[in-house]
Design a protein around this nucleic acid. Structure first.
Length: 469
RNA sequence: GCCCCCAUCGUCUAGUGGCCUAGGACACCACCCUUUCAAGGUGGCGGCACGGGUUCGAAUCCCGUUGGGGGUGCCA
């Protein structure tokens, strides 16, 4: 496919970082809207190659976000490790062009010498020693005098004085290429036109840009987007923070909500609402509009987005999305007891009560268990007074004799019984609710009773009346 | 140390010299609605880091200070 080529280059670590997810999404939106290509290049290491599940994890996570390998705009995955010989070849060309030289100083040598001279870092001491390649010698880039200007789509022009950049290492003493070199060589070879990545890479960009030039190519369009931070304004880290996308997926966050939240962290869609569909965001997203400052990854706001997106689902789609949670191993009923039609009927009552899909089972499980597990505190509160107990007993009798088993008539009946004891509906329904569902809170009671059915409701009420004695 | 980036309510942001007595969203609080809990509705709390300029006029432009973050490895 012609058009711009955006590359996304994650390194496999066993989980997919939410910050990486946002960068992927922004690249994806751009590549698609501009009729270009999203190039996935896995920056694998030895460890990653021994753990293929790390790579499939990345692909799965991208797919969950809607970044599909089957899409015509998707290209890859490539693996950096496959191109190691190209990296070394490129380094050779740099030597021939005089843009790189060999250096035999070890880190200890450098420290000693800089200490002696009272300077900082490597001073380019081997620049003109004319050393050839040999084991233990590193290849360094000969940083030219002058300044390097990085043209960045989100930050504008960033100028670096080359004298502040030391002659960095291209090839290690054992001949293996450094990340910086490998990265550029791959980008050149894959004809990458746009590099959109996290801000932490900005200080290394002049180095990469110099390699691009030394290799005889125009550098790509750079774009350094702000990092995601935690409440202490530090870069999100796996140790302290919840950063694995997979974890959110497994906890019942909707992909659409995750995508919406991530897209709008550091960028705002045109319209008057930040709750926004993918197509809209894809057509609105501009690097130029991305914020310059780090953004706090706010779990509460994510939760709010998720609730909104759950409510936006059609009842059918909601049921479908909930199924994995409603049939999970830890659910208190056998999975085959789940009544999908019943869930569908209850869906409008369940949706506004879910922050995540994982909340659904607790709102519905009383339908599918033989006997609900009664929360003792809730029971005690709901049967605390003589009036409340009387309501439970009388409504059990009345429900046994009711002609029409509908939410409306059940409500009507209970309302009257409650009034005769000076209780409003809110109080009067409490004991019935706990008796039938086991909990003090849940979906609307009378609708639930209607769907539960006369027989099962009455059985639970009789059991509760017995427990009163 | 040196280099780079950043700075609007607690948080995410709108804002590109007059429309700003700074708008929205999340969170929080109150009230309304109500069949518990939610959802929904209405309202409230709350911010341009500081100091100098430029200008008739600055959240917006410039300089400095302070604060925060990142980079600076034979890590990726």
């Amino acid at each position: 496919m012609a058009g711009p080529r955006y590359r996304f280059a994650p390194s496999p670590t066993g989980f997919f970082h939410v910050g990486g997810a946002r960068t992927a999404l922004w690249n994806w939106a751009l590549a698609r809207r501009e009729g270009g290509t999203f190039v996935l290049r896995i920056e694998d290491t030895d460890e990653a190659r021994n753990r293929p599940e790390w790579t499939t994890g990345i692909i799965d996570a991208l797919a969950w976000l809607g970044i599909s390998t089957a899409d015509p705009h998707f290209e890859g995955p490539y693996f950096q490790s496959q191109y190691a010989s190209d990296h070394v070849d490129a380094a050779q060309r740099l030597v021939e062009a005089g843009a790189a030289y060999y250096c035999d100083m070890t880190p200890a040598d450098i420290e000693e010498r800089s200490k002696a001279e009272g300077t900082q870092g490597y001073g380019g001491w081997s620049r003109d020693s004319g050393l050839g390649p040999a084991p233990g010698r590193v290849l360094r880039f000969r940083v030219p005098a002058g300044t390097t200007v990085v043209r960045d789509a989100v930050r504008g022009e960033v100028e670096f004085d080359n004298s502040t950049i030391e002659d960095f290492v291209l090839l290690r003493g054992n001949g293996s290429p450094m990340f910086l070199l490998a990265n550029v060589v791959d980008d050149v070879q894959m004809r990458i036109t746009h590099v959109v990545r996290a801000e932490e890479h900005l200080p290394n960009t002049p180095k990469q840009q110099m390699i691009w030039s030394a290799l005889g190519h125009e550098p790509p369009v750079w774009a350094h987007v702000p990092v995601l931070v935690n409440e202490t304004r530090k870069k999100l880290s796996k140790r302290r923070d919840k950063v694995a996308l997979e974890m959110f997926r497994d906890e019942g966050y909707l992909a659409s909500a995750m995508v919406n939240y991530l897209m709008t962290l550091g960028w705002t869609p045109k319209g008057d609402s930040e709750i926004c569909a993918w197509d809209q965001m894809e057509s609105d997203f501009r690097l130029e509009d991305v914020n310059h400052s780090p953004a706090f990854f706010d779990l509460k706001k994510l939760a709010a987005f998720n609730g909104d997106h759950i409510r936006m689902l059609s009842p059918e789609a909601f049921v479908e999305a909930c199924m994995p949670w409603l049939t999970a191993p830890d659910v208190p009923y056998p999975a085959e007891r789940l009544d999908r039609a019943l869930v569908r009927a209850m869906a409008p009552h369940i949706q506004p009560r879910c922050v995540t899909l994982a909340d659904a089972p607790a709102l519905l499980d009383f339908f599918f268990v033989d006997e609900p597990v009664v929360d003792p505190d809730a029971w005690a509160k709901a049967t605390a007074t003589d009036e409340m107990r009387a309501v439970l007993v009388e409504s059990t009798d009345a429900y046994g004799a009711v002609a029409e088993w509908t939410a409306a008539s059940l409500k009507d009946l209970l309302e009257r019984i409650g009034e005769s004891h000076g209780l409003k509906l809110g109080k009067a329904q409490a004991s019935i609710r706990v008796a039938v569902t086991g909990r003090a809170v849940g979906p609307p009671l009378f609708e639930s009773l209607e769907f539960l059915g006369r027989e099962r409701t009455l059985a639970r009420l009789h059991g509760a009346v017995l427990r009163l004695a």
